[in-house]
Design a binder for these strands. Sequence first.
DNA 1: GCCGTTTTCGGCCCGACTGTTTTCAGTCG
Length: 609
Amino acid sequence: MRPPTNQEIIKLLSEMVVFYEMDDVPFKPQAYERVVQAIETLDREVADIYNEQGVDGLRKIPGVGEGIAYHLELLIKKGTFLEYEKYKKKIPVRISELLAVEGLGAKTIKTLYQKLKIKNLADLEKAATAGKIQKLPHFGAKSEEKILKGIEFLKKSKGRFTLGHLLPIINLIENRLRKIPGVQHVTTAGSVRRMQDTVGDIDILVTAKNSAKVMEVFVKMPEVEHVYGRGLTKTNVRLNLPAGGGIDADVRVVPEAVYGAALQYFTGSKEHNIEVRKLAIKKGYKLSEYGLFRGKKLIAAKTEEDVYKKLGLIWIPPEIRTASGEIEAALRQAQGISPGLPNLIPYGSIRGDLQIQTNWTDGANSLEEMVKAAMAVGLEYIAITDHTRSLAMTGGLDEKGLARQAKEIDRINKKLQATCLPDRQASYPMGRWPTGQIGKLQVLKSAEVNVLKDGKLDIADEALKKLDLVSMAIHSHFHLSEKEQTERIIRAIKHPLVNIFFHPTGRVIGRRPAYALDMAKILRAAKEYGVAMEINSFPDRLDLKDTHIRQAVEIGVKLVIDSDAHSVQHFAFYNLGIGQARRGWATKKDVLNTLPCGEFLKAIKSLKK
DNA sequence: GCCGTTTTCGGCCCGACTGTTTTCAGTCG
């Protein structure tokens, strides 16, 4: 039997949360919830941990004690456990299916099952359409309508959206709210401020004197499809997105005097906030979105810095507020003990882009157009990385093709440096580039060399030697076993000419999961054989993931952050990649392409002892 | 069911809004 994946374990444990809640069992739901959260942020398979370290390994997962470790062991060995089977028999309801409907929770699911025998989404829709739900005690016409709306939403919604695709609409909404008289701050908090790769909803925090006016403007926006709830401090709507689909958005309006406390609260993550509030309680305080209090006395609220400081912490960057060691680090730093918080890589600090495709293969623009666009966003060097021979669908280049392209690059290097000066003041969707020295964009010869099934590269060494930089990538045989895939990748990493591993997990958010691989092993090999790992900034790649970046940083593997631009519009995404790097605790020193061109080349070559 | 610079027993985050109520439970973040 195949051992359960983390996703399957999470689904089962989440159902246990609801079963216990339906059964009015106290405290167990929270205990299970905590384990679900821990496994969600785990960068390894629980089954692998068990196979290597047994029950002791399971108990090292935060929140897993004797009882849950025992359940997990059975789950891994038998695919289920007694307690779960017991409840499934007692309450034969498709929990996760019903839970996905907006507004339904454990208690409602219980009532619907007991009174109307509703076991799944189809039963629910039938009962709601027939008007049976509104006749139940404590339900009414509105509850029923809400359920039908929820089902409809579920049918056409794809769930989470990538941050990169949402930013334009978020900027639009923020700007509308900023124009309202009396409005002071407008900040999108939540997962957007934490720069998470995907976003489930949009949380906008506003400070204003007249909240009624803010809510009025907000609910009347053309994108608003439905208003879930509207109050003077909180309004909740559903937006229609221009690209199709819909997403929920909240606005909270608070007085300017409590902006910091509210921002801290609404930025999350939920887990981070729970830890911070526990710390507050320990110190005799109470923390809410209205401030830090001792009894009824307000201690801090104006800025986030104040709130953290009064708790004995230093300010923690939003990207790492995940309850995974940042609070302890902030505590240490406030006391002058190291290691404190990492000095995260600043936005706007990328000087060179090492993955760019042109119309020599699957890019939309010519080499020259891409070079000009790169200069316009203020880059100092770029590597041209068209695909190689075996990627037939893109018309991948062979050794001769690469040689021809090299000549073209030589020509452009000569021509453009004299004639095209970058406009470093230009403002771009993702932010403003720093002013600096002008001129001199260096175009490097490179390639996105395809790794064959056996781990060999598809270009001869003689041709690779002529490139400034060699990058490898996986584009086929995604379904090898974890062991085979890992060995294949490590064989390629061992190649003496390889410098960078592009989009290492191969995931495409919302379309394709990562292929099976043992990232810890791959990172150790990358360290040993001097290969840098890419953080691909493309909105639906963002690969490496945050947890892998943190592993890489801990091991001392060097990183690069690229756009993977396939057209001139794609130079707008660096800050997504930097946000991802920050989520992985990366500093400027960890990311090689924050260096000027000459130093970068020296640094990346020196990895290969 | 978990966990420990108040604790190996006794705690477990906080508040807004809704719908159906006549004082509040459920859901959400």
